[in-house]
């Protein structure tokens, strides 16, 4: 198992969030939408210009910008 940044995740790769390293409004928004430690995510795809990223979480789809994804640390299975 390796910990990587959400931005570095590939399409169709899945993992479990281990940390959300931001506070304030952005931190709150990220958590409000279910991106909390322990949540399983799957990268569903990226926008045509590689940003934002679309994630599958708890049965729904969310999108967030890469610079927001930078605050999210994910544990993924080793290649």
């Amino acid at each position: 198992m390796a910990k990587i940044n959400l931005r570095e995740m590939a399409r169709n790769q899945s993992g479990v969030i281990t940390a959300v390293k931001v506070g304030g409004e952005l931190g709150q928004r990220i958590r409000d939408m279910g991106l909390v430690p322990g949540a399983e995510i799957l990268v569903q795809g990226r926008a045509p210009l590689y940003d934002p990223v679309a994630l599958r979480i708890m049965g729904g789809t969310l999108s967030l910008r890469n610079n927001e994804a930078d605050y999210i640390e994910v544990e993924v299975a080793d290649e």
Binding site: T61, L62, S63, L64, E68
Partner: peptide, 9 residues
């Protein structure tokens, strides 16, 4: 503003 946006089905 944070972009965190839901893509509803």
């Amino acid at each position: 503003t944070p972009f965190v946006l839901e893509l509803p089905p």
